[in-house]
Simulated scan of single mutants.
Amino acid sequence: MTATDVWLPISADEIEGLPAPDESGLSYRHWDGGPDFPADPADCVFYVVPYMKGTEVSTRPLAAMTSVQVVQTLTAGIDHVEPGLGSLRAGVRLCNAKGVHEASTAELTLALILASLRGIPRFVEGQRQEEWRGGFYPALADKSVLIVGYGSIGVAIEDRLAPFECARVVRVARSARTAERGEVHALGDLPALLPEADVVILSTPLTEATHHLANAGFLARMKDGALLVNVARGPVVDTKALLAEAESGRIAAALDVTDPEPLPAGHPLWHAPGVLISPHVGGSSSAFLPRAKRLLAGQITRFAAAEPLRNVVLTTR
Rank of each mutant, 00 (worst) to 15 (best):
Leu243Thr: 12
Ala244Cys: 06
Ala241Gln: 12
Arg250Ala: 14
Ser248Cys: 10
Val236Phe: 01
Trp270Cys: 14
Arg250Gly: 13
His271Glu: 14
Ala254Val: 10
Glu261Gln: 13
Pro262Gly: 14
Val237Cys: 03
Gly249Tyr: 05
Pro235Lys: 10
Lys240Glu: 06
Ala232Glu: 00
Ala241Asn: 08
Leu242Ala: 10
Ala246His: 09
Ala244Trp: 07
Val257Pro: 00
His271Arg: 15
Gly266Met: 13
Asp259Trp: 03
Thr258Arg: 06
His271Gly: 10
Val237Met: 00
Leu243Glu: 04
Pro264Asp: 12
Pro262Arg: 14
Leu243Ser: 11
Val257Asp: 00
Pro268Trp: 08
Glu247Ile: 07
Arg250Met: 12
Gly234Glu: 02
Arg233Met: 03
Leu269Arg: 04
Arg250Tyr: 08
Gly266Phe: 10
Ala252Thr: 13
Asp238Pro: 02
Lys240Gln: 05
Pro268Gly: 08
Ser248Glu: 08
Glu245Phe: 04
Leu255Tyr: 05
Val257Leu: 00
Pro268Ser: 11
Val231Asn: 01
Gly266Tyr: 14
Glu261Lys: 04
Lys240Thr: 07
Glu247Thr: 14
Ala254Asn: 03
Ala265Leu: 12
Val231Tyr: 01
Ala241Phe: 04
Ile251Cys: 13
Asn230Phe: 08
Ala232Ile: 03
Glu247Lys: 15
Thr239Arg: 07
Gly249Arg: 10
His267Tyr: 11
Trp270Arg: 14
His267Thr: 05
